[in-house]
């Protein structure tokens, strides 16, 4: 638990009233983001992202799995969120389970809603086999606003994930899958539809984007919205008493900022790959 004295909280509230935050940012500004992809050689795709003081590592493993419950998805996504004990003592023990469950659920719900992988080329044997993408997320350092960092890192990891080509051989009603061993026979995933979360904390009467850990401690409410590149809402997480009128104002900001954020992330990944 990050501790904040009443005096500090009062100063923080007053500063936010003037439209600035304690590190000089405006109310709807993100902290500097640093990004690196391809950091885990054993994973099909990986990325490491730093948002202020929060640092997150994501690895994606690609497997072939059996289709579950007569679903029509080409791809099954499995998210696992873990927080390394060195990041914070909060995340040891039982509290950690409910915290990571919530984050996993939010990611799953957002990706499912956005229908990210409905590409026909990803379908294997409908009704029998499908791709299974295991996304493992490890939070290395907590500096506030883990949701955004995790969603950004997940999207960039998936955008650089290599999926091997598979030849399907059908013989007498049973299927055999031959996965191409050739390391060059891979395709990258298209993740234009993948959403990212934007988190606001409600401090006093103001919403601030990308709260630092101090701001989260002083907040009386929180709103996390997952948007895709078109500005459609894929998931909402809220906490605390939020003013209904403020919400519509926020949503326009969310749509605009979300688009810029996704562009910048994609650019950075592209520049990294070309250099």
């Amino acid at each position: 638990m990050y501790a904040v004295s009443k005096a500090e909280k009062a100063y923080l509230l007053d500063t936010i009233e003037t439209g600035t935050r304690l590190d000089g940012r405006q109310l709807f500004e993100y902290r500097p983001i640093s990004l690196q992809v391809g950091v885990l050689p054993s994973a099909s795709g990986s990325s490491r992202l730093r948002l202020g003081e929060t640092e997150v590592l994501v690895g994606v493993k690609v497997e072939v799995g059996d289709v579950v419950e007569s679903s029509n998805d080409n791809v099954q996504l499995l998210f696992t969120v873990e927080c390394s004990g060195s990041a914070s003592a909060d995340f040891l023990g039982r509290e950690a389970e409910s915290w990571s469950s919530e984050l996993q659920n939010a990611l799953e719900s957002a990706y499912r809603a956005a229908n990210v992988f409905d590409d026909e080329r990803l379908s294997l044997v409908p009704g029998k086999f499908c791709w299974l993408f295991k996304v493992d997320i490890l939070v290395l350092d907590t500096g506030g606003n883990m949701m955004d960092a995790i969603s950004m890192a997940t999207r960039t990891a998936l955008s650089t994930t290599l999926v091997p080509r598979v030849h399907i051989v059908q013989s007498e009603g049973s299927f055999e899958l031959e996965i191409d061993d050739n390391p060059d026979a891979c395709d990258t995933l298209k993740v234009e539809k993948a959403p990212t979360f934007l988190t606001f904390s409600l401090i006093g009467n103001h919403f601030v984007l990308d709260p630092s850990i101090q701001e989260e401690t002083c907040a009386r409410g929180k709103l996390s919205v997952a948007v895709d590149a078109n500005g459609d809402i894929c998931h909402v997480y809220s906490f605390g008493l939020l003013d209904a009128v403020e919400l519509s104002r926020l949503l326009t900001i969310i749509k605009k900022t979300g688009k810029v954020l996704l562009n910048r992330l994609d650019e950075c990944v592209k520049n990294g790959e070309s250099s």
């Binding site: 719900s109 078109n230 459609d232 809402i233 894929c234 605390g240 939020l242 209904a244 949503l251 326009t252």
Partner: peptide, 21 residues
């Protein structure tokens, strides 16, 4: 005039979302 929780599943545009809320 406040909301204490909003739970959302599915993909919706902002206008549809606001009208539903």
């Amino acid at each position: 005039a406040q909301l204490c929780e909003i739970q959302h599943t599915g993909k919706l545009s902002i206008q549809v979302w606001l009208s539903a809320v």
